[in-house]
């Protein structure tokens, strides 16, 4: 563990970000994926991460969901450390128990949906609230029915995932994540595994979330148009670092850095 000594035990102030990466480093053996990453996400903000493959985009979400442990720095959620905990006045790597006590603030949707195949759409959504939040079944059912209606999947709530299309599965997965009432939602390339004609039904659900709910969102996507429409801020990742960031208008219309320009040109040509 590097540079932990200089990390604050807590972030304070009026404008404490909901998510704060401080000098976060992640490496797989000799391959450095994230290098001293600093990234703050404010409450209610929608931040999109774009960039070439292998630039560490997905890793940002995975370490925030605690699917992977970081090798340096610290991630704060709501001003309190997530990946670390305080012990005798210093930060030490968090125990499983501590992580479980903090992880409920974060929800995630995956590229390949990862619905539970042995449960119906409704059961998938109810699993977290009933098992983890110990919510009474009737209450969880009400909440999940409402969410399934919001994502337009109420008519398929008794179907197993194998009977649903990719777009339908992803919408159920969004409802499942929302059922835990997270403060921060992570979307990891949620349209990348979908057929082109169903991408819209998933992006529309996310647009609705942005418009109607005060969620903090962090999203990795290859849909530049979508990113431009819904983001408050777009971060262009290159080589494990934020090469450039700004409002969608700034980044897409007037990119300053050479690499950003190259990337956007390449993406445009592909369409």
């Amino acid at each position: 563990m590097t540079n932990l000594m200089n990390m604050p035990l807590q972030l304070t102030g009026d404008t404490t970000p909901v998510v704060s990466f401080r000098k976060v480093r992640k490496a797989y053996g000799p391959i450095v994926v994230l290098e001293d990453l600093n990234l703050d996400v404010a409450a209610g903000e929608t931040v999109t991460i774009v960039g070439p493959s292998g630039s560490g985009k997905t890793t940002v979400l995975r370490v925030l969901m605690t699917l992977e442990t970081i090798n340096g720095g610290c991630i704060y959620v709501d001003g309190k450390p997530l990946t670390h905990m305080e012990k005798n006045g210093v930060l030490v790597p968090a125990s499983q128990k501590y992580i479980r006590s903090r992880r409920s603030d974060i929800g995630m949707c995956f590229q390949h949906f990862n619905l539970f195949p042995h449960m119906t759409a409704l059961e998938n959504c109810m699993e977290g609230p009933v098992q983890v939040l110990n919510m009474p079944k009737a209450e969880a059912r009400d909440r999940c029915v409402e969410l399934l209606e919001m994502v337009g999947m109420l008519h398929k709530m008794d179907q197993h995932p194998s009977r649903l299309s990719g777009g339908q599965q992803q919408r159920v997965a969004i409802a499942r994540a929302l059922a835990m009432r997270p403060k921060v939602m992570l979307f990891d390339e949620v349209t990348s595994a979908l057929d082109p004609e169903v991408i819209g039904e998933v992006t529309n659900v996310i647009r609705k979330l942005v418009a109607e709910h005060n969620l903090t969102m962090l999203m990795v996507t290859h849909q530049m148009g979508f990113a431009r429409d819904i983001s408050d801020r777009v971060c262009f990742f290159y080589g494990g670092k934020i090469e450039e960031q700004g409002t969608p208008a700034e980044l897409f219309s007037n990119p300053q850095r050479e690499r950003t320009q190259q990337f956007l040109r390449a993406v445009k040509e592909a369409i």
Partner: peptide
């Protein structure tokens, strides 16, 4: 059992035991 199932369970903040009993073993 697909690795993504473990990750989905983690994202729902399920414990290791819950993940085994509810998600992994039935599959």
């Amino acid at each position: 059992v697909a690795h993504g199932q473990w990750e989905a369970a983690t994202a729902l903040n399920m414990s290791t035991k819950q993940t085994y009993v509810r998600i992994v073993i039935p599959q």
